[in-house]
Design a protein around this nucleic acid. Sequence first.
DNA 1: ATCAAAAGTGTTATGATTACAAATCTAATT
DNA 2: AATTAGATTTGTAATCATAACACTTTTGAT
Lengths: 137, 137
Amino acid sequence: METKAITEILNNNDIKPSYARIQIYKYLEMYKSHPTVDEIYLHLIDEIPTLSKTTVYNTLNLFSERELVLVLNLDNLEKRYELVEQNHIHFICESCKKIYDIPYEDNNLLPKGFENFQIEEKHIFLKGQCPKCSKLN
Amino acid sequence: METKAITEILNNNDIKPSYARIQIYKYLEMYKSHPTVDEIYLHLIDEIPTLSKTTVYNTLNLFSERELVLVLNLDNLEKRYELVEQNHIHFICESCKKIYDIPYEDNNLLPKGFENFQIEEKHIFLKGQCPKCSKLN
DNA sequence: ATCAAAAGTGTTATGATTACAAATCTAATT
DNA sequence: AATTAGATTTGTAATCATAACACTTTTGAT
């Protein structure tokens, strides 16, 4: 995605499109790799030598407040971040640790008697063996 | 649940039924409140004045390895623990922070083309407004 | 009663995240 | 072009959950 398009998205969400913010958004958009703060920081530090890890935290928290970004607590070691896009669920392979995005068909998760729970966020993640790793075992 | 029954469960899972372990199991069984390590520790310290928080960590990790206990990473502040029982999903109210257990009808989560992902654990949690809190707003 | 293995304890270390204050940048106004 | 207030970024220090580790206590078999 071009800088111009990202600038527009940020502006639309009342976020001043600073260079750091654009680059962080661009990273999320390019790699779609559910990165940690550290991964983003290490990737951008070459391009932005003055970058501070605090800025990465601040930016991701801001993006999350504005609902541009979803925070994933998959392993409870480090938070992971992804752009809010179409609904999907996450599958973590316990062998190779790879995180897969799996399309999600929007089933109705609430059974009878629970209809007046108002859902604002759905998090579904599965742990197991991915096809590659289950072949090996 | 009686001490005797818990002793048996632990024995069946090759866990020596020490007093601390039994009490921690009993707490999980009685309250079903998705407690944190701290909550368990603070509740048991009256009964077991020598209890160490490390013991609570060790015990819960052991229970988790033996698949007696499920670790929940709901908010990524503190881990929460619950006994492995029948399938259910979690709903966290963003207003009152209460965690609800909601029965879960075992839909098939994997769409076509993803059948060879082997699921070992399912985690589904929803965030939103519980019935009480959505009435108030 | 002895003794090795298991369990528990308490202190210290680790590592992700936040708080905070200072520095820098931005953009509007003169 | 200079000024300046406000936003952004930075770097350090603090926080807090969890793990590592070494020591002590308990257990259970001989």
